[in-house]
Amino acid sequence: MSDTRHTKVLIIGSGPAGYTAGVYASRAMLEPLLVQGIEPGGQLTTTTEVENWPGDTEVQGPDLMVRMEAHARAMGCEVIGDIIASLELDKRPFVAHGDSGTTYTADAVILATGARAKWLGLPSEEKFKGFGVSACATCDGFFYRGQEIVVIGGGNTAVEEALFLTNFASKVTLIHRRDELRAEKILQNRLMKNPKIEPLWHHQLEEVYGTDSPLGVEGVKVKHVDTGEITDIPCKGVFVAIGHAPANELVKDVLETHMGGYVVTQPDSTATSIPGVFAAGDLTDHKYRQAVTSAGMGCMAALEAERWLAEQGEDAGKDTSEPLGYGVENPAAE
């Protein structure tokens, strides 16, 4: 049976941005509803040690997100385990349809849907996803105890994955198309000092190969970016760590975006191209992409939503025929 819930502020997403918005919106007595989405807790639930969260010299990513959720709940934010399948922003109150069948109406919306792992788009990569090809070392690293594996990428994500995987693998080959890493210097130093990790420069993944019955990875073919020479590297696991793309399915055809799909916000603000709709965290941040900056934007979004609602006065919550945008379905919720 379908149900309809109304709230002053609907928060879509549950990473550092979403939960922080929940804390601040609750403290403003806005009684927000927070819909967690397809990955409750966001990307930090698939990381291990977090060493750059202020106040914690080291904290496990999943533990930090459990604490954030508990904090939001303690402040009065109602956290709902649902996925928003479509969002209508062409009139107020805004309307969101949950995968559960629940319809949410809201006077203001805070988008904190974050980002998802990027893939290379190779047919062989797709074939072996979940059967030797992964984008999450913390999810799947345990399965490769004593095995040789490869990591693709050269940024923070790739280096962090490679370092973590040395806890299980006998050898980790880091494959990067350039001859230097983009990762933070402290991570680069750790990687270079680790005897289990061997960087392979100027190469890119060409093909993943393996067995069909049972489905499993046996190795990869990599190509030298300058000479085109193909090298065969035996391995049992392939971890693709080439970054993330904003999870913008709900609004990519509605809100203004740039830089490959990141939602545009006004200068020094989380306000989007539709009044009453705010965006925070990795959905809008193509530059920093840090948990602490996401949390800061979640705070900003809640404070700006509170201010915007106060300015609306008696009009808040009423239907308006003013064209504000277009509804769009979320294919990721299917």
Results as ranks from 00 to 15, higher is better:
66 V>K: 14
46 T>Y: 12
268 D>Y: 14
271 A>G: 13
134 S>E: 02
248 N>W: 05
6 H>F: 13
194 N>L: 02
259 M>N: 15
36 Q>V: 09
193 K>Y: 02
186 I>P: 01
37 G>F: 03
122 L>W: 11
76 G>A: 04
299 C>T: 12
60 Q>S: 14
22 G>L: 09
169 A>R: 10
131 F>G: 00
194 N>S: 12
182 R>Y: 08
195 P>Y: 06
134 S>Q: 02
269 S>Y: 12
331 P>W: 11
277 V>A: 04
178 R>G: 10
4 T>N: 11
134 S>K: 08
86 S>L: 06
56 D>N: 14
197 I>E: 01
55 G>N: 09
182 R>T: 12
211 T>P: 00
63 D>C: 00
311 E>Q: 13
244 H>L: 11
242 I>N: 10
252 K>N: 11
305 A>H: 03
198 E>A: 07
138 T>F: 03
116 R>G: 07
40 P>S: 06
256 E>L: 13
252 K>I: 09
139 C>L: 11
41 G>I: 03
107 D>R: 06
249 E>A: 11
333 A>C: 06
287 K>I: 15
304 E>P: 07
140 D>E: 04
245 A>Q: 12
272 T>N: 09
50 V>E: 02
188 Q>R: 14
93 P>K: 05
39 E>G: 00
59 V>N: 01
228 G>W: 14
4 T>L: 12
261 G>W: 07
308 W>E: 02
134 S>M: 09
140 D>L: 04
25 A>L: 10
34 L>A: 03
42 G>T: 02
55 G>A: 07
268 D>K: 15
210 G>Y: 05
51 E>F: 02
274 I>W: 08
267 P>F: 10
56 D>Q: 13
114 G>R: 06
180 E>Y: 11
209 Y>P: 02
253 D>C: 00
168 F>N: 03
50 V>C: 07
128 F>G: 01
161 E>I: 04
258 H>E: 15
32 P>N: 06
218 E>P: 00
258 H>T: 13
171 K>A: 15
33 L>Y: 12
168 F>V: 06
334 E>T: 11
94 F>G: 02
270 T>V: 04
72 A>K: 02
99 D>V: 13
45 T>S: 05
254 V>Q: 03
129 K>H: 12
253 D>I: 00
51 E>S: 04
294 S>H: 10
49 E>P: 01
182 R>D: 10
127 K>L: 13
13 G>Q: 03
14 S>H: 07
333 A>K: 07
320 T>L: 06
72 A>I: 07
13 G>K: 05
328 V>L: 15
310 A>G: 11
175 I>S: 06
224 H>T: 05
128 F>R: 04
136 C>N: 00
46 T>A: 15
251 V>Y: 01
36 Q>R: 14
223 K>T: 15
189 N>T: 14
240 V>M: 09
250 L>Q: 03
131 F>D: 05
323 P>E: 10
241 A>H: 08
117 A>T: 10
103 T>G: 02
